[in-house]
Design a protein around this nucleic acid. Sequence first.
DNA 1: GGATATATTTTGACAAATCAAAATCAACGC
DNA 2: GCGTTGATTTTGATTTGTCAAAATATATCC
Lengths: 223, 223
Amino acid sequence: MATIAVENYLKHALLLAERSPDGLVPMGELATALEVVPGTATTMVKALADSGLVVHEPRRGLRLTAAGRRVALNVLRKHRLVETFLVNVLKMDWAQVHAEAEQLEHAISDAVLDRLDALLGHPATDPHGDPIPSVEGTLNSAVYATLATCATEVALRVVRVTDQSADFLTFAEAHGLRPGAVVQVVDRNLPAGLVTLRRPRGKPFALSLAAAGRIWVAPAEAG
Amino acid sequence: MATIAVENYLKHALLLAERSPDGLVPMGELATALEVVPGTATTMVKALADSGLVVHEPRRGLRLTAAGRRVALNVLRKHRLVETFLVNVLKMDWAQVHAEAEQLEHAISDAVLDRLDALLGHPATDPHGDPIPSVEGTLNSAVYATLATCATEVALRVVRVTDQSADFLTFAEAHGLRPGAVVQVVDRNLPAGLVTLRRPRGKPFALSLAAAGRIWVAPAEAG
DNA sequence: GGATATATTTTGACAAATCAAAATCAACGC
DNA sequence: GCGTTGATTTTGATTTGTCAAAATATATCC
């Protein structure tokens, strides 16, 4: 069985590879994501390469192998199902659950995972709208517009909030910006770096372009 | 925060101390419980003593300090509440849940623990009848008769099954010997080391004295 | 195309937890 | 009281994952 450290390296490699067109993850990005110094990442990646979980391209970065990706998807599935459980069943604050899931993802067995999945009704996304890898190992990687890039003055539905920091999530929650919520962009002031939003029957409020870029939206459907 | 190893040493020290009149735990017993060689236990116990979690009495054994006992009770509470969750909510087999809880006990936070406790309705015992330490740190250490020592030919209620091995628990389950079940001792043959039991409307069946000693019972109340 | 900046790798060290095997201590029997 | 037995401790080594800092390779910029 993979150690906790190995699981974390693979999980972060997967998340970074998903955001990279060619699947190559630079060492520095991996080190930053894992909060280790670059030399540590190099050492570990070489060990992972020896185990056949990644391919190390010296001075360029790393790529997950099929075996590594399988492990990473399993960990990510645990992480996101645990988050869903903590919010939906234990009624915990969505701003806290990421930190909890970081621990639990390494402690729950596949047997518990399956039961949890059934209890939750096989959800497709976690409370942040992040897609939950299927048990077969597929990951929905659909890309949406964000509040920084979408059309203005039209009704939108929040589909995903791609920031795990408790502060940001608490802010988003306070303004009703969680998956499923309806919102529209009232104004976008690029020089000022500001986006102004309004929720139905709510007051307009502003947030930075950077923050708006972390909130993914789709056209609001009727109903 | 205590490491997983530290939590395990303290938890097993607590379990062994509970079964010892003076609270002194011999090194060898601790090493056996933790499945490490004796030298490892010595090294670790000295480190725990330096942290003020245990008192090491050289060549005699160790004793938990108040601080160590507090940590141990918290871990044990997590273990037993997780077991209860896995059986009561996720409907897992009671023979499997001990192994699962061994991992999860080190991964769940106190915040999750509290939510779980509330979800389960603040249970006093886990699915094996083992008492769950209270949040204040008290542990019900009531001692009962066992099927090896109790009166014969009277109705009894199973209150606790003190064996974590999956094989034994599967056997017990198959014969309906779980906490709450009613049973009586038909015969006890000491030379043969055999106890014969019968459940209401069931066929008599036998088990060894050693096995019978792991099933704790109380007089069955009316109703 | 050579100097400079940046990313990556190497090297040497360290902490935590473990084992194997030798050394030591305590107790017990006679 | 002295040797033997069994439990415990000591010693030296190993594995995993990490850091600090030096060395090296790559990219970029006039």
